[in-house]
């Protein structure tokens, strides 16, 4: 066991050392070397000589990665506008470099295509999209310059079509590519050298990522479908079910929310049928009696308007039943 622990320690130290060079020696650094020699000449005196000095500039390596910041597809609803997806673009090369960005909202296998996609740079740097403060990306005009070993957040902001249905997923990909590669027409393979085009005029070498990266993210639609069904039962004064004067009709309004997500300010209202009279204090919601007066509970009855029950925010799936009684005049 002691051996193993010792080995672990050594491994940790090695990784520690590597971590410091995660992206390599900074591009443009000069590696300088001069050798010396000492000797005793035939007259017996000690001498020291130096060699020529080699100065080796460090080339720039272009490498980039991109990942989605969203843990899963971003929940949205049909007809939503400017819904952000978040990405992180990291320069894993060793020099500052401008990168171009491309969003694609027509991805194969997508349940629906998000529309009107725009790219924003997280200028604020807080990871939260803010259309008034973050910078709209315009290709070729404000390509972000990312420093070595630094990341930027990028948002792809899209509208959700009204036709998108519950549980459908709409995919978006964000691609980033070194402007040097993008502007060369056909991107060069790893190992290709753009002579003199790196930081400070050193060579720029295409790294293992080919200075191109793509990540996918998506929207998932949570939409709520609602229905309201009205039914009635009659109890006549004689214990039967005949709708005769004096008989009591119980109305049941069944509100059903299916799908996923929430709706707000839901309210059920119903007028009292003509030639009938509301039975005071007969209003219930899900089996619980409600008062007729407008107060802290959800229900109220007003002459002329009938009954009203406020459900407020309803998270699907959910079912609510409202009942009230009227007496036939």
């Amino acid at each position: 066991m002691k051996m193993n622990l010792l080995r672990l320690g050594v491994l940790a130290a090695m990784f520690g050392a590597n971590a410091a060079y995660a992206v390599g020696t900074a591009a443009g650094t000069n590696i300088v070397n001069t050798a010396q020699a000492t000797f005793v000449d035939p007259t017996g005196s000690s001498k020291t000589v130096s060699s020529n000095t080699l100065s080796t500039p460090v080339a720039e390596i272009l490498n980039i990665t991109i990942v989605s910041n969203d843990a899963s597809n971003v929940t949205t609803s049909p007809s939503s506008t400017a819904v952000p997806l978040s990405f992180k673009v990291t320069n894993t090369g060793n020099g500052s470099e401008p990168y171009a960005l491309f969003a694609n909202n027509t991805v194969a296998g997508s349940g629906f295509n998000p529309t009107n996609s725009k790219i924003y740079i997280d200028t604020v740097g807080n990871g939260v999209f803010d259309s008034t403060k973050d910078t709209l990306y315009v290709a070729g005009s404000n390509d972000p310059v990312i420093a070595a070993d630094h990341s930027i957040n990028v948002f792809v902001v899209s509208d959700i079509p009204s036709t998108a249905s519950n549980a459908q997923v709409g995919l978006v990909t964000l691609k980033t590519e070194a402007v040097m590669q993008e502007s060369s027409g056909s991107p060069q393979p790893a190992g290709y050298v753009y002579v003199g085009r790196g930081v400070g005029g050193v060579d720029a070498v295409i790294g293992s990522t080919t200075a191109v990266a793509t990540a996918q993210d998506g929207y998932v639609v949570a939409s709520v479908l609602t229905s309201l069904v009205k039914s009635s039962s009659v109890l006549d004064p004689f214990g039967g079910t005949e709708p005769v004067p004096g008989a009591v009709i119980t109305y049941t309004l069944t509100f059903n929310a299916t799908g996923a997500g929430s709706i707000t300010t839901a309210k059920i209202t119903d007028a009292i049928p003509s030639l009938t009279t509301y039975v005071p204090s007969s209003l219930t919601l899900d089996g619980t009696a409600l008062t007729d007066t407008p107060d802290s509970d959800a229900g109220q009855f007003t002459t002329g308007n009938g009954v009203a029950v406020t459900l407020g925010t309803v998270t699907a799936p959910a079912t609510h039943a409202v009942t009230f009684k009227v007496k036939i005049n």
Partner: peptide, 21 residues
Amino acid sequence: TVALLALPAAAMAADQVELKT
């Protein structure tokens, strides 16, 4: 670099051992 290059050039002429890297 310029400073370092200047030194050995002057020194090497007189010495018996020449060093190159």
